[in-house]
């Protein structure tokens, strides 16, 4: 049993606190705890900054195409067929003699436009139908659910091919709408599942007991939950639309070949294989890939990390 050694100063403190001291100490404690509770804000990481830079660069190239491109994308330079990348043609030419770099910049305009409009259309449709199928009473809800199910049972690409076959003349807007109207299924299903999950939640019962209106419930409870779960959706829809346009044009069912888009350039890869012209295949693919990756990375930074608990493994 060790003896306790307190020095004279500490011994003098073995008394109750005075009022003044208590007040002072409590004030200190308050600031101390407030400072400690400051959460660490998520700073934009290096990868997000890089993604923003690259995407901005691509958009800039497409928008400022007339200023940057040295050659006319529609002109056929017959004396420079299938030239590999060099001084004059930065990314080479295709088998028809068109400058690949200009093709990509001008083509980017159409592709990005189609991507954006297609994504907006698909997200809007998906959300409305998905939430509607969960919220509307009995028969309408069931009907919408069946609609989602049968639409999803056929691959999106197949729907797009079918409808594209029916519409012979396609311009950018039409193509974007076709793509948008055929890609909303999975988003609708997810939105429906999330809305349904709320049904069993206790706070919904509480809200009902307060007689909250439907719109209030949607705004307070449904919308934040949807945003946190489905925040990958805009980027995914954009990527899907971009890809769909590329595939459709590659298969010959997208934009007519006279028009320029990344998909049309990619559809030249069949002929490029015969000539072993790797630049016609590689460069458009890379620019498509980079656009999609940067878009996804940017949207990933908005995702709220659910670090609720640690893995129990």
């Amino acid at each position: 049993m060790a003896a306790l050694k307190l020095d004279k100063n500490e011994l003098s403190l073995l008394r109750p606190c005075s009022e003044e001291e208590l007040r002072q100490l409590n004030a200190e404690i308050h600031t101390h705890s407030v400072l400690k509770h400051l959460s660490v804000r998520q700073q934009a990481g290096l990868s997000q900054k890089l993604a923003l830079f690259l995407l901005g660069l691509i958009i800039l190239l497409c928008v400022a195409a007339p200023l940057i491109c040295t050659h006319d994308p529609t002109k056929f330079y017959l004396s420079h067929l299938n030239e590999s990348p060099g001084q004059e043609f930065w990314l080479g030419t295709d088998s028809l003699g068109r400058d690949l770099f200009s093709l990509l910049c001008y083509g980017g305009r159409s592709s990005l436009l189609i991507g954006t409009i297609g994504a907006l259309c698909s997200c809007a449709l998906g959300l409305i139908i998905g939430i509607g199928s969960a919220l509307f009473p009995r028969y309408v809800g069931v009907f919408l659910q069946r609609l989602i199910e049968i639409c999803q049972s056929v691959p999106s690409l197949l729907w797009m091919l079918t409808i594209a076959a029916f519409i012979p003349r396609r311009d950018e807007l039409t193509l974007a709408l076709i793509i948008g109207c055929c890609s909303w299924f999975s988003l609708a299903r997810l939105a429906r599942a999330e809305t349904l999950q709320l049904q069993g939640a206790s706070f919904m019962e509480a809200a009902a007991s307060f007689n909250s209106s439907v719109f209030l419930k949607i705004r307070l409870h449904l919308w934040p939950r949807l945003v946190s779960v489905l925040n990958f959706a805009p980027a995914a829809a954009f990527n899907q639309a971009l890809l769909a346009e590329a595939v459709l044009s590659f298969l010959g069912l997208g934009l007519p070949l006279e028009q320029l888009s990344w998909g049309c350039v990619l559809s030249l890869s069949g002929r490029a294989l015969q000539h072993n012209a790797w630049w016609v295949i590689v460069f458009p693919g890379i620019i498509l890939l980079v656009t999609m990756l940067t878009m996804t990375l940017l949207c990933a930074s908005w995702r709220i990390e659910h670090k609720r608990r640690c893995s129990n493994l």
């Binding site: 890809l243 590329a246 590659f250 990619l266 693919g285 890939l289 990756l293």
Partner: peptide, 11 residues
């Protein structure tokens, strides 16, 4: 996942 499948095929 992001590689377009047709592009990957051609490559």
């Amino acid at each position: 996942y992001f590689l377009p499948s047709f592009w990957l095929g051609v490559i």
